[in-house]
Write a protein that binds this DNA or RNA. Sequence first.
DNA 1: CGTGATAATGTTACAGGTAACAATTTAAGG
DNA 2: CCTTAAATTGTTACCTGTAACATTATCACG
Lengths: 331, 331
Amino acid sequence: MKKKRPTLQDVADLVGVTKMTVSRFLRNPDQVSAPLQKSIAHALDELGYIPNRAPDILSKSKSHSIGVLLPSLTNQVFSEVIRGVESVLEPAGYQTMLAHYGYSKEAEEARIVTLLSYNVDGLIISESYHTERVRKMLKVAGIPVIEIMDSVSPPIEQAIGIDNQAAAYAMTSRMIQKGHDKIVYFAARMDQRTLFRVRGYEAAMHDHELKPFCMSTDSSSSFSLGERFMKEAIERHPDTNGIFCTNDDLAIGALYGCQKAGIKVPEDMGIAGFHGHDIARVMTPLLATVITPREEMGRLAAEHLLARLKGEKVNQRVINLPFKIEEGESI
Amino acid sequence: MKKKRPTLQDVADLVGVTKMTVSRFLRNPDQVSAPLQKSIAHALDELGYIPNRAPDILSKSKSHSIGVLLPSLTNQVFSEVIRGVESVLEPAGYQTMLAHYGYSKEAEEARIVTLLSYNVDGLIISESYHTERVRKMLKVAGIPVIEIMDSVSPPIEQAIGIDNQAAAYAMTSRMIQKGHDKIVYFAARMDQRTLFRVRGYEAAMHDHELKPFCMSTDSSSSFSLGERFMKEAIERHPDTNGIFCTNDDLAIGALYGCQKAGIKVPEDMGIAGFHGHDIARVMTPLLATVITPREEMGRLAAEHLLARLKGEKVNQRVINLPFKIEEGESI
DNA sequence: CGTGATAATGTTACAGGTAACAATTTAAGG
DNA sequence: CCTTAAATTGTTACCTGTAACATTATCACG
């Protein structure tokens, strides 16, 4: 007895035409005669007709949806990327299919297969390293793929991001220049981007003949983790006078940690973050951070994807977006 | 010349069987003979076969995907809800289709239609007020719908959330009890949940014979906005001695605004937020806030949705989750 | 070796919207 | 009024995986 949702045929029957005529009305009302326009519109409303994309997806393999695959949704950074992506896709009539894989390679493969099984028209994925199997699947699928976040590794097709390593190098150098010479790096999970940043940090330290030291953990980053790391750093390495964090959450947590321990920032301890979280622009002291164009990254990725769906060729395999070193008052 | 992705038929041709046999292998390998298992597996790999859900969606109107419709993705709160939802849906083999509507009723309708056109098996939506047309569409679609965030208004089918009004009433009362009697409410956009909170705030003020005053704007909330509001409040209403913010972002911004203006918290100004952002647990002074179960809300919504997809009846139309008043050190 | 049961594979039809082509109606012009 | 063009509506086929039913191969056992 459960009524399933009405089809074009149901509407057509009600009006007394074929479903083709109703289909035409939906795509371009002027293709049907004036009187029919009225009765079809009425019937559609009456039955509460809901369009159905399934047939089209089946026959044309075009779903008007884009898969977005990110390592995590916890991270503020990725929310902003998603916002950028959606701000472009939604007005263009594309639906976002969101998936995340919690930094696991196996999960990533599985998510990609799932997204492809829905016939997404394109993919936006993060991370710069992929297994051979993932690369093959993406090739077979024959849809445009854009990698975001980092701009260094050779992309599958096209990458849009920043040079994480260079950014970390720049910030570390600035900290050293400001007089901090015992700088510890706070990381959480060692994902691809963090690895690049650590590399940049280490390079800068080496270039100044300083010894790098990195603290990391498997759990995800948070304000509280930054505070905990800070406590640990002070206890174990009392001579530490600088902290470079892989993101602003950790940095802010570290900053509060200093406040509670009575350590003066930046005099006794320089603290720098990464990303340019909105809070960093209002807090006291203003947080030194690397400002990255998260939302723009998402926006650009979506725009390039749409361009390629329209047939445009990739004319720039790697798009390297600028970052900005914001000195703030904490280094 | 463009090779489109291989179908079951392509695989079957390569092996020399019908696609039905390949289909059986995919669903249950033991249904085909041992030698065929090997050659089919090999052919699938060779061609890089990717499953295709489109036919199934078309013929069974089951997509194994759930639409999640939220007003915004900017807000940290919603990221956490999404995380909760995904943490349940993903292991259950359901794909999340994410959409947002920027607090616009028209956009909300459009997004719902879009999600339904993809044959989502269920919907998780927020806000507690919907137009008649939306309600009708959801009814016709015949899929389970769960509303989240607030637990007061009569739901379409089932709602999971907190009592925003009661929470705001409780926090306002606590602030008054602590000695703040000129409390201003900071809101950003006046969405449904904020309206409930304002109502609770106003009720508490009235019950103590105090005059409520509310500041709001159309832009989205941010740390910077909280700081700006604080400045404005100090200038225009110098006798203000308490601020209740519709979320922690505003509250933290307001707190920094006080620090910069040399106003002591909580002595000269009590500040309270809403939600229990992680940062509120490490900052100094600890922020007074209403701790809400965002992630659990998403998780529960997803769980109930799955239960209903398995045929379970709705046995509790409104699920009212507890909130917690965290006094912190800022009131 | 035959018979019935079981296992393995094949055949057919279907889901719903629309492209492509066909048929019919209406309008225009002489 | 008749002819041709244009406008309107109808018909058929297709996209791909799988349920349901049909057929063929295999095996056990008297």
